[in-house]
């Protein structure tokens, strides 16, 4: 394998990894605060892509406007799901809320099949993203650069919100100890709602870019990225935002390089993430950047 080819694969990996990172952050933020694997997060990605699809195809809106609307709508859907399916169970055993999350995910997938139809649809991709840049022998599709750039900008914004705003401070307080946060006068419901909204908005951006990268749309596209990004969040250390980014990049780059170096194993591409998950959970259950939490009796 030549160096150029390696570089080519690496760039593809970074582009996929940044998508994973973007989606993984939604998982990690929600888990950090309410200790819930939001199974529906993957299906949120699918909804966002369909919103853009219908915005452009059905309502003939300009592309950027439907993307913007899709992000807002998806954030609202995320908040709605929290209100309807998770909030009533906040004091219930963790398993109940997990089952509810599974139910919501299952619902969104099948709702998608009923409403959007089971047939794959072509996702509209504007010309801007399709151009190719050549650097010596390495050719990069514009999208391959735009995705990481957008991801990095969004992540910097997110880190700023979490570290430097009052809401961010409240979010951090909630993730440390939700009951104490309540006693300190933090409106916990509002913070949780905000977290779901923010996570879903990031997932929406991820979903739209996913649609641009793999322009075939069907109601079940969210499942695999959803599972993989959860794994990315766990690999990095769940509840830890830089960890989610790191995990996303590890998974994305690893997956692409696996297929590139061992083409015979390309059929096992989707299993790769799960094997990484098992290894991480066995040897470092708290993830790469996670802190160890002792279990209290």
């Amino acid at each position: 394998m030549t160096f150029e080819l390696f570089l080519q694969h690496l760039i593809n990996g970074i582009s996929l990894g940044s998508l994973y990172a973007l989606i993984a952050i939604g998982y990690t933020m929600v888990y950090g605060i309410v200790r819930l694997i939001n199974f529906a997060h993957g299906d949120i990605i699918m909804l966002a892509a369909y919103f853009v699809f219908f915005g452009v195809g059905l309502f003939h809106m300009p592309w950027w406007l439907s993307a913007l609307l899709s992000i807002v709508l998806t954030a609202l859907v995320g908040m709605g799901i929290e209100k309807a399916a998770y909030k009533p169970l906040r004091d219930a055993p963790r398993i109940s809320i997990l089952i509810s999350a599974i139910g919501v995910s299952f619902f969104l997938e099948n709702f998608g099949i009923v409403v959007f139809g089971g047939r794959p649809q072509a996702f509209y991709s504007p010309k801007v993203f399709q151009g190719v840049i050549k650097l010596g022998n390495v050719s990069i599709i514009n999208l391959g650069i735009i995705i990481p750039v957008i991801t990095i900008i969004l992540l910097m914004g997110l880190v700023y919100i979490v570290n430097n705003t009052r809401t961010g401070m409240a979010m951090r307080a909630c993730s440390k100890d939700i009951d104490t946060a309540k006693l300190m006068g933090i409106d916990v419901d509002r913070i949780i709602s905000f977290t779901f909204g923010l996570g879903s908005a990031l997932a929406a951006v991820g979903g739209i870019m996913w649609g641009l990268k793999y322009p075939q749309l069907h109601p079940l596209i969210g499942i695999m990225p959803g599972l993989k990004c959860f794994i990315a969040a766990v690999v990095g250390g769940i509840g830890n935002i830089p960890g989610a980014m790191l995990g996303g990049f590890i998974l994305g780059i690893g997956e692409i390089l696996l297929v590139a170096f061992l083409p015979g194993l390309s059929g096992y591409r989707d299993a790769f993430a799960f094997i990484i998950l098992i290894l991480i959970l066995l040897f470092r259950p708290t993830g790469i950047l996670g802190e160890k939490v002792a279990e209290k009796v």
């Binding site: 399916a85 169970l89 109940s96 089952i99 509810s100 599974i102 139910g103 919501v104 299952f106 619902f107 997938e109 099948n110 709702f111 099949i113 009923v114 089971g118």
Partner: peptide, 15 residues
């Protein structure tokens, strides 16, 4: 696909 939607709704409602 409607069957599965009903199914999912039952699951959520039960929980």
């Amino acid at each position: 696909g409607m069957r599965m939607v009903v199914f999912a709704v039952i699951l959520i409602v039960v929980v």
